[in-house]
């Protein structure tokens, strides 16, 4: 049974702000499903005695002192944006109320 249906792809695409339509949805659904099936093999491994972990590196508590380092210049930051009205980055109007 396919886990990834075209509907799932459509939903994920929306969340990721990707425009996918028509044939692309069915095509990607099939491909993504195949990838997931492949990874699915891992489910066969017995993990009963394995501690759950979110990281594989044997590292914890990496911290830095509360000391300033140089920031980028305003010009450099504003130049990164697709649109700007220095010193601000310009975006399409967002209205909340």
């Amino acid at each position: 049974m396919a886990v990834v249906t075209p509907e799932v792809v459509k939903q994920v695409a929306m969340l990721a702000r990707l425009r996918l339509e028509g044939k692309a949805l069915t095509q990607l659904a099939a491909q993504l499903d195949e990838i997931l099936q492949y990874v699915q093999q891992l489910q066969a491994v017995d993990t009963q005695r394995v501690e759950p972990t979110s990281h594989v590196l044997p590292l914890t508590n990496v911290l830095r002192k509360d000391e300033p380092t140089p920031s980028l210049s305003q010009d450099a930051v504003v130049a990164l944006a697709p649109a700007a009205q220095p010193p601000f980055v310009k975006v399409p109007k967002v209205i909340e109320v």
Partner: peptide, 9 residues
């Protein structure tokens, strides 16, 4: 009134 919003990061 304008068509844009502005961001300060």
């Amino acid at each position: 009134g304008g068509a844009s919003s502005f961001v300060d990061f």
